[in-house]
Nucleic acid binder design. Structure first.
Length: 116
DNA sequence: CTTTTGACGCGTA
DNA sequence: CTACGCGCCAAAA
């Protein structure tokens, strides 16, 4: 398979890449699944996500169900549109109902066929 | 090698 | 509901 072993970043990308459409995961969620309980690293990893990475980073938002903002200080409008396109609805203020669109985790995706 | 930063999480006020 | 501070780990300079 692949000479992975890049770093724990690769783990983040993989977890994010397994998020099903119409679902959103939080940084803390990814951080926990990644094995490291540092939500900051997840955000940092996302920001470090190269444009050639097949990682739907737009499906990763903060625990409050809000879209994160970049260093620019303004959230990516495109991200909100993409999530909206996937069937995710935003409440007043741009909040997402994690109780409905919150990703249950790899347990709800792994079909025993997905290998790491 | 050390230091700074970084798309966060959570508790408390 | 919002605002502030602390904690966390890793990568980049």
């Amino acid at each position: 398979m692949k000479s992975s072993g890049s770093s724990f970043y690769d783990r983040i990308y993989r977890l994010v890449g397994m998020i099903p459409p119409g679902r959103v995961a939080t940084y803390g969620q990814i951080a926990r699944l990644a094995g490291r309980c540092s939500p900051r690293n997840v955000g940092y990893a996302m920001s470090s996500v190269p444009p050639d990475s097949p990682v739907p980073w737009h499906r990763v938002i903060n625990s409050r169900g809000r879209i994160s903002v970049r260093s620019d200080g303004e959230p990516c409008d495109a991200q909100r549109q993409m999530l909206r396109s996937e069937g995710i609805e935003f409440g007043p203020g741009g909040t997402v109902d994690l109780s409905v669109f919150g990703w249950r985790g790899p347990a709800g995706e792994v079909s025993n066929d997905e290998q790491w």
